[in-house]
Simulated assay, not measured.
Amino acid sequence: MSTLHWTGLIVLAMIAGAVVPFQSAINVNLGRGLGHPLWATLASLLVSVVVLLPIIVALRLPLPSLAFISKAPLWMWAGGAFGVCFISLALVLLPKLGAAGFMALALAGQVVASLSLDHFGWFGLMERQLTLPKVFGVALLMAGVVLIQFFDAPAKGLATAG
C-alpha cells in the first residue's frame, strides 16, 4: 500500500474514533431530556436508521440475500446488541468519569479485546500474533488511562465562598 493510501486510512480511523466522544456527550444530554439513558439509546439508533436508509437508496445497494439472512449464525447479529451496550454504558458512565476518562477506559477495553480478536482470529479475522511490543503498547495505554482518570486537576468554578 502506498503512503498516501495508509495516510488516508489513518485519518479515517481517527475520524471514526473522534466522533465517539461527541456522540456520547450529545446522547448524555438527550438522555437527560428524554428522562432515561435507554430512551436516548433508542433515539440514537433510530436516527442512525433514518440517516443510513437514504444513503443506501442513493448508492442503489442491492437488497441483502435472504438465503444468507436465513442461515447466518446468531453471533453475526450481535453487533447491534454491542452497539446498544456501548451507547447505553456511555450515557451512564460519561457524566461520572468525564469524556476523557470514559473514552480512555473504553479505548483500553477496545485495544485489549482487539488484541484477543487478532491473536485468535475470532469471527473470521486474520490471525495476528500477540507480540511483546503489542503487550508493551497496551501497558503504555493502561498507564495513560491511569494518568487521565486519576490525576485530574480540581474542577473549575466549584470553589465556594468561605
Rank of each mutant, 00 (worst) to 15 (best):
S2L: 09
T3F: 12
L4E: 15
T7P: 02
I10G: 13
I10C: 15
V11S: 14
A13Q: 11
M14P: 01
I15G: 09
I15N: 10
P21T: 12
P21D: 14
Q23W: 13
I26D: 05
N29V: 07
N29R: 14
L34W: 00
G35F: 05
G35A: 06
H36M: 06
L38G: 03
W39I: 10
A43F: 02
S44K: 08
L46N: 03
L46S: 08
V47E: 06
S48E: 09
V51I: 15
L53N: 05
I55N: 01
V57I: 15
V57H: 12
A58H: 08
L59N: 08
L61F: 06
P62S: 03
P62Q: 02
L63H: 04
S65C: 06
L66V: 04
L66Y: 03
A67R: 12
F68P: 01
P73E: 03
P73K: 14
P73D: 03
A78E: 09
G80A: 06
G80Q: 03
A81P: 00
A81T: 14
G83R: 00
I87Y: 00
I87V: 13
L89H: 00
A90P: 03
L94A: 11
L94H: 03
K96R: 14
L97C: 01
L97M: 08
G98R: 04
G98S: 10
G101M: 14
G101W: 15
F102W: 07
F102S: 00
A108G: 10
A108P: 08
Q110F: 05
V111Q: 04
V112N: 02
S114P: 01
D118E: 05
F123Y: 08
L125W: 14
M126D: 14
R128Y: 07
R128H: 14
Q129V: 05
